[in-house]
């Protein structure tokens, strides 16, 4: 048994190293990292940060980036009240219908609607953004190696191009973007939004807040998952102990 555990842990370690190696490959630039409250075994989303992050998304990102997997009603998880959600949804306009004459019409959003997309389709988005396609942000945190830290680094990573760097027209220099040439201009600027809770809207603060919000949109069930995991694992430990005792008992009768 002991030997088995030893061998297994060595094998696990080797595999972890080889897989982790596979994942690390390709990156190369060291990302800026921040502490995220939702990390760790008991991590939960920082509600205040996520709420500020929603404001940043709406005032800064939503002009170009969609959030098509997220429904307004789910904002209740971040501590928004039903009335706030209704009001928020109402600001958006959706195409409804057809009515009795077969015509489509505009209708205000409802909590069951998902966030509206700024462009009708990818072609329209590219046409308005100099050929670049602003990706949907619902899953962006899970869809990039480096996860929260990558998004955070990218948002604060705008800089002047170093001497001799060939930056094409319409491109911007970003320390953390692969190849450093990014079509998106620096989205955040000092006091770009006015936080209702009085938090000073520094670029760093806004980058962190919107990252927390987008971490939530990418993995809305994180808290439920970790909570359940703790209970399940404790239960399994108890079960293992009991099964081991039974195993010992039964095998003892053999010898």
């Amino acid at each position: 048994m002991l030997k088995l555990i030893k061998t297994l842990s060595v094998a696990a370690l080797l595999t972890v190293v080889s897989i982790a190696g596979a994942q690390a490959a390709g990156g190369g630039i060291e990302l800026k990292s921040a502490t995220w409250k939702h990390e760790g075994l008991f991590g939960t989303y920082d509600r205040a940060a996520a709420q500020r992050g929603l404001q940043v998304y709406q005032e800064v990102c939503a002009g170009c980036h969609s959030l098509r997997h997220v429904a307004f009603r789910t904002l209740a998880d971040l501590g928004f009240s039903e009335a706030e959600i209704k009001a928020l949804a109402k600001e958006a306009t959706f195409v409804g219908g057809p009515d009795d004459d077969g015509e489509m019409f505009d209708r205000p959003g409802q909590p069951s609607d998902k966030f509206p997309s700024p462009f009708a389709n990818e072609k329209a988005a590219r046409a308005s953004n100099g050929g670049a396609f602003p990706p949907d942000l619902s899953l962006i945190v899970k869809a990039r190696g480096g996860f929260e830290n990558y998004l955070y680094s990218l948002l604060i990573g705008y800089d002047d191009a170093p001497e001799g760097f060939d930056l094409p027209e319409g491109m911007n220099y970003n320390t953390f973007f692969s190849g450093h040439k990014i079509a998106m201009p620096a989205p955040l600027s000092e006091d770009g939004v006015e936080y209702s809770d009085g938090t000073p809207a520094t670029v760093d603060q806004m980058a962190k807040d919107v990252t927390v919000f987008l971490a939530w949109t990418a993995e809305p069930k994180l808290e439920h998952r970790k909570n359940m995991g703790m209970k399940v694992i404790l239960f399994l430990l108890l079960m293992s102990g009991l099964f081991y005792a039974v195993k010992r008992k039964i095998w003892a009768e053999l010898h």
Binding site: R225, K226, G229, L236, L237, Y244, W251
Partner: peptide, 20 residues
């Protein structure tokens, strides 16, 4: 019973990935 004990241990490893 030996396999059941093994299963319980294995489920802990599985859960660690699944939940965390």
């Amino acid at each position: 019973v030996k396999d059941l004990f093994g299963l319980a241990l294995f489920l802990i490893v599985f859960s660690a990935f699944l939940f965390y």
